[in-house]
Design a binder for these strands. Sequence first.
DNA 1: CATTTACTTGACCGCTCGTTCCAGAACGCG
DNA 2: CGCGTTCTGGAACGAGCGGTCAAGTAAATG
Lengths: 203, 203
Amino acid sequence: MARPRTFDEDAILDRAMLLFWRKGYEATAMSDLVEELGLGRGSIYAAFGDKHQLFVRALSRYLGRQDTLLTTAFDADGPALAQLRDVLDRLLAADAACGNAGCFSVNSIAELLPRDEDVARLAQRSLRVAEEAFTRQLERAAQDGELSATVTPDAAARLLLTVIQGIQIVRKVDPDPARAAVALDSVFALLSKEPAELMPDPA
Amino acid sequence: MARPRTFDEDAILDRAMLLFWRKGYEATAMSDLVEELGLGRGSIYAAFGDKHQLFVRALSRYLGRQDTLLTTAFDADGPALAQLRDVLDRLLAADAACGNAGCFSVNSIAELLPRDEDVARLAQRSLRVAEEAFTRQLERAAQDGELSATVTPDAAARLLLTVIQGIQIVRKVDPDPARAAVALDSVFALLSKEPAELMPDPA
DNA sequence: CATTTACTTGACCGCTCGTTCCAGAACGCG
DNA sequence: CGCGTTCTGGAACGAGCGGTCAAGTAAATG
């Protein structure tokens, strides 16, 4: 019964996300947001509360997309490890979209934890979701005999989670995608059950 | 021929380091530093230039210690992989000194790269030093037959570097040291050439 | 078409930021 | 024992911060 919003809240959140992603929380000023979002200060405060709430919603949106990718990308067809590797590559590729800014989640964890409890909760949930998705896929890999017997699916999931986060850091220092891929290549090579070709004396 | 400094510059840098480590660059105000360092504003500016230079010197000091550990801790005695694992444990333990604040270097990379060129240079140097130290030690491991043939020393070094950085992130979200160790345990288990597990070996 | 309601805008607020500056204290030297 | 020099601490500064508010505007309703 009154004037409706003239902007799309989700679109605005996406733009805010990109800004926070590139600059971090503290280094992003409200004046930057006003400029980037194309909204008046008042509209932003009316719609999102304050800077911190806006940040949390932007981060939440980012993490939601990651969660969606991880919980929908796996199916029971095809080689489990190859499928997992493909998802991780896509995840890393998505984070390369914001020119050398790394991963919004990793950046936020490093900048704001352990002080910011809201961000801490979001990060905990997101890492748990990822780890569980990895674990399920690795359990299937183990059942199919793809996974090295040296590690359990649990431990391998934890390792993969750690490697992904690590790549996001190393990549900010050395953006060469080929060198970034080395860590993933290595860990997958190690996780795979080696075929007999490398064994010198089978019988 | 005049009044000498009444404070120890290195001790002041250490305290500044701890503050930047805990709070990050942007969230640390000069007033925080004045309070924490016990120096007047004027003295800080006279001694270090400005906030950014002070930060760079504090980070440089932190990285220098890491570099020293990595370039002095290895010797040619004893099992190479075990020695490497021990050094990494000490490195992680050192970073646990600043209560759940993670690793100063990782935090700084995530917050300030790719914008801050000074920090970028420091980080590049430090990661290169670490990677080379890992590589040398892993080459020795390979020569001694400790290293899995699945990976080259180069690739394994890159993987280890990545895992270390990743642990620093994951740890800020989930500080449980046991869970943090899982990733390291797994990667070392995978990197080791399995000698005995599958064949009964009398001890 | 008048009224109502919510949204939009940008001027504005108090505060805190990083930085500068200066008056006085402290020390080495002739 | 002053004199010159440097260090010290804190007052003060302009700029920019996050956040507020009132006036103007546009849509929906009867």
